[in-house]
């Protein structure tokens, strides 16, 4: 199976040849790939070099944490890539953004109001958790659609807080 893997705008052609081999560009590498203890921690030996990394799936693709650095990576097979090219991309920019609580906590303040026009990076909600106040910011320009919580309210992790259109 052939994949196009993108890290920070740079594309890699990676083919999973069989269980023991991958081809990167035109180089064939011997690979020994194991998950540690059934955890999202993976150990890989690539042509004799040993690496370990924590890999999780996020909304934007894969997050690979290795040697103190985090890489944001998208992996597509050729068909997915063609489909996305045909759709013209831009799904992330156009759609509605639903702000969910990244952790359980207490809503301290909501410095925006419904119908308000906001800029990317503007603070939408201040959430207190573990004695720390955290500013949850908007990832895009838009209009505040619906605020589902009030200041002083306790929220669960992943609870919908508000949406930006």
């Amino acid at each position: 199976m052939k994949y196009i893997t993108t890290v920070d705008g740079k594309e890699y052609q990676i083919e999973v040849v069989d269980e023991k081999h991958v081809r990167v560009g035109d180089r064939l590498l011997e690979v020994d790939f194991e998950s540690v203890n059934g955890q999202p921690v993976f150990s890989v030996i690539l042509d004799g070099k040993s690496y370990e990394s924590f890999i999780s799936e996020s909304d934007e693709g894969w997050q690979v944490l290795m040697r103190g650095k985090q890489y944001q990576i998208t992996v597509e097979d050729e068909r997915e890539k063609r489909l996305r090219a045909a759709a013209g991309g831009g799904v992330a920019e156009g759609g509605e953004f639903n702000l969910k609580a990244p952790m359980p906590g207490l809503v301290v303040a909501i410095p925006v109001a419904e119908g308000q026009e906001i800029k990317k990076g503007q603070v939408l909600i201040i959430l207190e958790s573990m004695k720390m106040q955290n500013e949850l910011k908007s990832p895009k320009d838009g209009i505040v659609e619906r605020i589902r919580v009030k200041a002083g309210e306790s929220v669960e992790q992943k609870q919908a807080l508000l949406s930006v259109k």
């Binding site: 890290v7 920070d8 990167v24 993976f42 290795m66 890489y71 990576i73």
Partner: peptide, 22 residues
């Protein structure tokens, strides 16, 4: 990331995990 030799390794790892999932 430009001078980081591990970017490619990370890319291979992510591909392997994605492949396993598929």
């Amino acid at each position: 990331n430009a001078s980081d030799p591990n970017v490619e390794i990370a890319a291979i790892l992510a591909t392997l995990v994605a492949h396993q999932q598929t």
